[in-house]
Structures are given as C-alpha cells and as structure tokens.
C-alpha cells in the first residue's frame, strides 16, 4: 500500500497542506475540514500530509490517522481517474443494486473499494445518494445515472473509454 511519490508531488502536498491549515487557522477542532480540503485537492490523504498536519497542530500523528481511517469519505490511496459509485441504499439494493455492483466488479475485474491497476477506474459503494425513486442508481464521476440495468453497465464503461470487447478477448487468451 506504500506509494512512491515524486519530489514534485511532495512539494505539492506540502503547499496544499500548509494552505489548508492556514485556511482553518491551525485549529485542532478543524481537523475534518482540513482533511477534506487536502483530499479535495489531492484526491487522497498521503501519509506525508497527515504527518505534516499532526506536527503543525501539535497532536500525535496517530490522532490524525484515527480520524482519516474512521470516516467513509477519506481515502489513503489515490483514486482512479473515473470513480464509479454504486448506490447501496435500501431502494437501490432491493431494485438490484448488488447485481449492478457485481456487474461492474466483474467487468473491471476489481472488488468493491478497489482501483484498477491502470488507475483508470475505482469502484465504491455509497450508502444513499437520495435518488431512491430512480433506483438502482450509479454515480459516475459526480453524474447520477438512474434506473441502471445490468445491461447498461458495459455502455457506461465504454463511454468512459473502456474497451470491453478487447478485454474479453484478452481474457480468452
């Protein structure tokens, strides 16, 4: 799970964190907004960012890690280029949300919560996006797709540039 980061990225992390801290007046009780800001700009919470936040706020590093690992929103790894979030709210589940999840997982060959090795797609579950009347719902890069049938899964992925046919042939070989 350790990620290599370049000197350039290290610098970007440093500035981002410094700005997020500044914006929140270096307040310990603003830890969530600080982490949200950092993740909003970097896409995830790098280890270096958490270390820097802890030392600036003068709190144990593990306290930052504790918060970062508690909430669903935070991720410790960079996300895929395209994020697919399958709604697992009650209405979506009963309308076959799990079948949609399985279909994406099968096509992308990853499990829920994972990112494809080429970092193109990540697959996540969301508790409920509040569009229950359109169940089952999938959020594709912030766009809500309603009434998704399993047969639409390939279409959604192809629209994002995934080559479905080719992949199958590869698998066959």
């Amino acid at each position: 799970m350790e990620i290599e980061i370049t000197a350039e990225e290290r610098e970007a992390i440093k500035t981002t964190v410094a700005e997020a801290l500044e914006k929140n007046s270096y307040r310990r009780d603003r830890l969530l907004p600080i982490l949200q800001e950092v993740q909003g700009r970097l896409g995830y919470l790098p280890r270096e960012a958490m270390e820097q936040i802890a030392s600036s706020l003068k709190i144990p590093e593990v306290d930052v890690y504790s918060v970062a690992t508690f909430y669903n929103q935070f991720r410790l790894n960079p996300p895929g280029e395209h994020q697919i979030k399958v709604c697992m709210g009650t209405a979506c589940h009963m309308a076959g949300g799990h079948i949609i999840m399985d279909s994406f997982a099968r096509r992308l060959n990853i499990k829920e919560g994972e990112t494809t090795p080429d970092r193109k797609f990540s697959l996540e579950r969301v508790a409920c996006v509040g569009c229950c009347a359109l169940a089952p719902v999938v959020v594709v890069n912030e766009n809500v797709e309603g009434k998704v049938r399993p047969t639409r899964v390939d279409g959604i992925l192809m629209a994002l540039g995934k080559e479905i046919g080719k992949k199958n042939e590869e698998e066959k070989r």
């Binding site: 958490m50 270390e51 802890a54 709190i59 144990p60 590093e61 593990v62 306290d63 930052v64 890690y65 504790s66 690992t69 508690f70």
Partner: peptide, 17 residues
Amino acid sequence: GAIGFVRRGMDRRVAAF
C-alpha cells in the same frame, strides 16, 4: 501519544500511526 484507536467497526483496533 504513540497509540490510539484507528479504523471503525469490526476493523477498529489499537495501533500506531
């Protein structure tokens, strides 16, 4: 401040950073 509770639910555990 070496250890704390990390993660949530069944994954909750005592650990270092």
